Simulated assay, not measured.
Amino acid sequence: MPIEINGATYETDEEGYLVNLAEWNEDLANIIAKTENVDMTPNHWEVVNFLRDYYNEYQIAPAVRVLTKAIGKQLGPDKGNSKYLYELFPYGPAKQACKIAGLPKPTGCV
């Protein structure tokens, strides 16, 4: 279902993931977050930006286990745990955060 912002149309797949990753921007992320019932805070943006950097480096969206470990390494153990990430993204940290970050669905996510 396409998303429209200020006259621009962004294509998404049947699950709401952005089709063209290069079209991602923060306005679009905020719209997607609203549809996911997520109120973006600096902590949410920290995870979203982390995911975008991770994707740029490895060309893959990490599954939740890999995401948790990688965040723990870079941002510290208080943020690198499932409890913290599920508080931010209750429908699945990897799946939901990747959607907001304009990334493909992580491998291993159903």
Rank of each mutant, 00 (worst) to 15 (best):
M1A: 08
P2G: 13
I3A: 02
E4Q: 12
N6K: 08
G7L: 10
E11D: 13
T12F: 02
T12A: 05
E15L: 12
E15T: 07
L18Y: 05
W24R: 04
E26V: 05
E26C: 06
D27E: 15
A29W: 00
N30Y: 11
I31D: 10
A33V: 04
A33L: 07
T35D: 10
T35C: 09
T35P: 03
T35N: 14
N37E: 12
V38R: 12
V38E: 09
P42T: 05
H44E: 04
H44Q: 05
V48N: 00
V48K: 01
N49C: 11
F50K: 03
R52Q: 11
Y55V: 02
N56R: 12
E57M: 08
Y58L: 09
Y58K: 13
A61S: 11
V64D: 15
R65W: 15
V66E: 13
L67C: 02
I71A: 04
I71F: 05
I71M: 07
P77N: 11
P77V: 09
G80D: 10
G80A: 09
N81L: 01
S82P: 01
Y84K: 06
Y86K: 14
Y86A: 08
L88T: 00
A94S: 14
K95T: 01
C98M: 08
K99V: 00
I100C: 00
G102L: 02
G102T: 03
G102P: 00
P106T: 10
P106M: 09
T107M: 13
C109W: 15
C109M: 12
C109R: 13
